[in-house]
């Protein structure tokens, strides 16, 4: 595979919830190492789109290829893709009955069949990377929201994925904790990780995004580099959206 062949490719993807069409003919290619920030009004299908990429949602039409594997019914393929694609959720979704260290090692041990000792040193390494090595023995409920989200990022990293998906990772956080999570994500972007980030944190987007994707009503309305998107968006809808969220 050559360097600029896409690692993620969505072709004409549509998705229905009953009669309601949540995605309407999405086309998107992402090359390895690229950082894409997705924004758009509530209900525009941002979550649905990235959840189709690791098949937490099944698309109804079109095709999705991730790292050379085409997503279909085959559960082995789906699991292979999920091992390469980490996901960070708005609500963290840490495993409350496991310690931080166990949250991090369960994937490597059970899915990657790694030895416990190796998994733990890997986990401690990534806890260091998200700046909370001292929390390894605690349970998630004992941590602040910002710390929990950083544990969730470390949990994804422990699977050593090639791609990370973020679905509004800071929207459930108190304002004073948003930056500690964004800082970790900026550092991550510096390592060459392929990232698709759904967020309305436009400061973060300006800093790390290679491309901005603007969605509305299940469609991608505009794709542009941040320098263009923020100063001179093509579509009126994107302009209105930016005016609204940048007002504050």
């Amino acid at each position: 595979m050559s360097d600029d062949a896409p690692i993620i490719e969505l072709r004409n993807v549509s998705k229905f919830f009953g009669p309601f069409q949540a995605l309407a003919g999405i086309n998107l290619s992402v090359v390895a190492g690229e950082r894409v920030v997705v924004c758009g009004p509530s209900g525009s299908g941002k979550s649905t789109m990235i959840r189709c990429i690791n098949r937490l949602e099944e698309h109804d039409q079109g095709s999705i290829t991730v790292d050379g594997i085409s997503l279909g019914e085959d559960t082995k393929d789906i699991r292979a893709v999920r091992q390469e694609v980490g996901m960070v959720f708005q609500q963290f979704n840490l495993f409350p009955h496991l310690t931080v260290l166990e949250n991090l090692t369960i994937g490597p041990i059970r899915v990657r069949k790694m030895e416990k000792a190796r998994a733990e040193s890997l986990a401690r390494n990534y806890l260091e990377r998200v700046h909370i090595p001292e929390q390894a023995g605690k349970y998630p409920a004992q941590l602040s929201g910002g710390q929990q989200q950083r544990v969730a990022i470390a949990r994804s990293l422990c699977m050593e994925p090639r791609i990370l998906l973020f679905d509004e990772p800071t929207s459930a956080l108190d304002p004073e904790m948003i930056n500690e999570v964004l800082d970790v994500m900026v550092e991550l972007a510096g390592t060459g990780m392929t990232m698709i980030v759904v967020t309305h944190e436009m400061g973060f987007a300006r800093k790390v995004a290679d491309r901005m994707v603007f969605m509305e009503a299940g469609r991608i309305v505009e794709v542009a580099p941040p320098s263009v998107f923020f100063t001179n968006p093509e579509s009126d809808r994107a302009r209105m959206f930016l005016d609204q969220i940048l007002e504050h």
Partner: peptide, 24 residues
């Protein structure tokens, strides 16, 4: 969300029951 998190690290359905859902 527990299912989604476990699925997204590639666990099998059986592993999810055994290690994530039933203990909780």
């Amino acid at each position: 969300g527990q299912w989604e998190a476990a699925n997204s690290i590639g666990m099998t359905g059986w592993q999810i029951y055994r290690y994530i859902v039933l203990p909780q």
